[in-house]
Design a protein around this nucleic acid. Structure first.
Lengths: 110, 110
DNA sequence: TCAATTTTCGTAAATGTAGAATAAATACAT
DNA sequence: ATGTATTTATTCTACATTTACGAAAATTGA
């Protein structure tokens, strides 16, 4: 893989980060994925996707201020970059284009 | 990965097979991907995706009759199954749902 | 220090990529 | 007819990248 492509899980994470704006961080992302889909990825899967997405320039992050809750390390908040937005938009429009080219006949027998 | 999920390349191949219906086979798929996207996957990539998709039950295949053209082994033609259709439809609607939940604010600064 | 919360790390499994090897069909020369 | 070359396709093999999991480490407030 050429290092610039968006895997299917990566795309999901990117979309969820948009939905969670501006409070997207590891655990929240994990939970939101569990809410909105049928999967429950492990926390490690989330973080490795996040770091790859950041390497690719589709995300940027910053450390939030410490909260006033009981304990906890500072949250690392993520946002989509312009190039990340472009990537998901490209995927979206490609899929729509292809979808529209599928002849009705292809489904007839199902 | 749970073995039942649809990777991003697999999804692309599935859509292209729909577009090409009823003449989807290895080489044609490779060429159509080259036409419609910016990528030019190797033929081996196509076939390994095809065989995984068939294992998962998203595709079925049959051998075409021999043509009367110059040369060539018989083509193996692929079609999407009901369960394959369901898989791409689920992905499509999930993405639309998420997309619609992204607040405008998330794009503001781009 | 203790408990809570979050990230990081190491390893394993699934998916994606590539090219060489193999197979099957037709054309052509003998 | 028969054998060989040529063309078109698939299969095989190896490796790279992405995804997954769970345990360990780090950070913070009490």
């Amino acid at each position: 893989m050429k290092g610039t492509h968006l895997g299917e899980f990566e795309e999901l994470v990117l979309l969820i980060i948009g939905v969670l704006y501006p409070n997207a961080y590891g655990l929240a992302i994990k939970q939101e994925i569990a809410n909105q889909t049928k999967r429950s990825p492990a926390i490690g899967a989330i973080h490795s996707a996040l770091s790859r997405l950041e390497d690719k320039g589709f995300l940027k992050s910053h450390l939030a201020d410490a909260t006033h809750e009981r304990g906890g390390r500072r949250k690392k908040l993520y946002e989509i970059t312009a190039s990340g937005k472009q990537a998901i938009e490209y995927n979206r429009s490609l899929r729509n284009t292809l979808w529209n080219q599928i002849p009705e006949l292809a489904w007839k027998k199902l």
